[in-house]
Computed example of a mutant assay.
Amino acid sequence: MTVQMYLARRRQIEIVLWILFLIVLWLVQFTVVYLEHLGGESRFQPWEFLVWEGTSIFVVGLLFPLILFWDRRFPLNKETLARHLIIHLLLTLPWSLLHVVAMVALRTVIYSLEGGSYNFGHWGIEFFYEYLKDFRTYGFLLGSVYFYRFLLRRMQSEPVPRSHDGRLTDSVERPERLLIKKLGKEFLVNVRDIEWVEAAGNYVNLHLGDRIYPLRDTMAKLLERLDPVEFVRVHRSYIVRLDSIAEITPLESGDARICLKGGQQIPVSRRYRDLLKARLKPN
């Protein structure tokens, strides 16, 4: 599979790989725990180990999008690293609480279906034990997200800038925030929150939900600064975030129309239609 094909089907591949990773992790964890009890006189049945590890990993999979959401709200970069890192450390507590509550609830239901009952043990002691594991899991998942993004940039042959001492720095060409001047005030707009962009004379209008921020720039120059993995130009006057697209309707004229998840409709010109299709489908 070529890089272009991978990027075109990136979302589907990511979901499949994530599911496979969870399944493999489930089997590995089950094997480790089962072998630990195999040598002794364990009062537990093999299916119980499967349930324990399976419910834990299943809930981790469900809660992973929450980490992505918090990362969008509190991204880790050189300007905000110290402050946002503390926030993420604090967020491990509610994340672990959600994980443990959901995990215990699932185990209780499964045991009741088997005609038995599940005893989690002393909540204070057991939650502390689970939190230590969840703390490491949260850090591993968050770190994996940033490592995966780094690999994506390398796949696209994008330069990864470094400081004089060799440490990674933020790319000037790919800013995570844009400084916007509006009504005599200055705003920092998170690039990840931009759903679509519209040309407006000497400005471009950044659409973030029902908010609009004018930026003095051209479409071409702004597109160079946006992540090509996330954004695509569909018209001389429009740029959209791929994740914001709900559906695409081909038109008899050869053009197309995009309906965004927020309900907005964006025209797609024939000039850019093939580019959009290439980003959404394999070559």
Rank of each mutant, 00 (worst) to 15 (best):
residue 6 Y to A: 03
residue 9 R to L: 10
residue 14 E to R: 13
residue 14 E to D: 14
residue 15 I to W: 06
residue 17 L to S: 11
residue 20 L to K: 04
residue 20 L to Q: 08
residue 21 F to M: 14
residue 24 V to T: 12
residue 24 V to K: 03
residue 25 L to P: 02
residue 27 L to F: 11
residue 31 T to K: 13
residue 32 V to C: 09
residue 38 L to G: 01
residue 49 F to N: 09
residue 50 L to G: 14
residue 51 V to T: 15
residue 55 T to R: 07
residue 56 S to K: 14
residue 64 F to E: 08
residue 70 W to N: 06
residue 73 R to K: 10
residue 78 K to T: 12
residue 81 L to R: 04
residue 88 H to L: 04
residue 89 L to P: 00
residue 93 L to R: 03
residue 93 L to Q: 05
residue 95 W to V: 01
residue 99 H to A: 09
residue 99 H to Q: 12
residue 105 A to D: 07
residue 113 L to Q: 10
residue 113 L to D: 00
residue 116 G to E: 14
residue 119 N to A: 12
residue 123 W to N: 07
residue 123 W to K: 11
residue 128 F to V: 12
residue 129 Y to Q: 12
residue 131 Y to A: 06
residue 132 L to P: 00
residue 134 D to S: 15
residue 138 Y to S: 01
residue 147 F to M: 11
residue 153 R to S: 06
residue 155 M to S: 08
residue 155 M to K: 12
residue 158 E to N: 07
residue 161 P to H: 08
residue 162 R to Y: 03
residue 163 S to A: 15
residue 168 L to N: 03
residue 172 V to C: 01
residue 173 E to D: 13
residue 173 E to Y: 12
residue 176 E to P: 00
residue 177 R to F: 15
residue 178 L to S: 01
residue 183 L to F: 01
residue 193 D to Y: 00
residue 196 W to H: 15
residue 199 A to Q: 05
residue 199 A to W: 08
residue 207 H to T: 04
residue 210 D to R: 14
residue 211 R to H: 10
residue 213 Y to N: 02
residue 218 T to C: 00
residue 218 T to W: 03
residue 221 K to R: 11
residue 221 K to P: 00
residue 229 V to Y: 04
residue 231 F to E: 02
residue 231 F to T: 04
residue 233 R to D: 02
residue 233 R to A: 04
residue 241 R to L: 00
residue 242 L to C: 02
residue 244 S to L: 01
residue 244 S to T: 09
residue 246 A to F: 08
residue 256 A to P: 09
residue 257 R to G: 00
residue 257 R to F: 00
residue 257 R to A: 03
residue 259 C to I: 11
residue 263 G to F: 10
residue 263 G to D: 07
residue 264 Q to T: 11
residue 264 Q to L: 03
residue 267 P to T: 04
residue 268 V to D: 04
residue 270 R to W: 09
residue 272 Y to T: 02
residue 276 L to D: 04
residue 279 R to M: 14
residue 279 R to F: 08
residue 281 K to R: 15
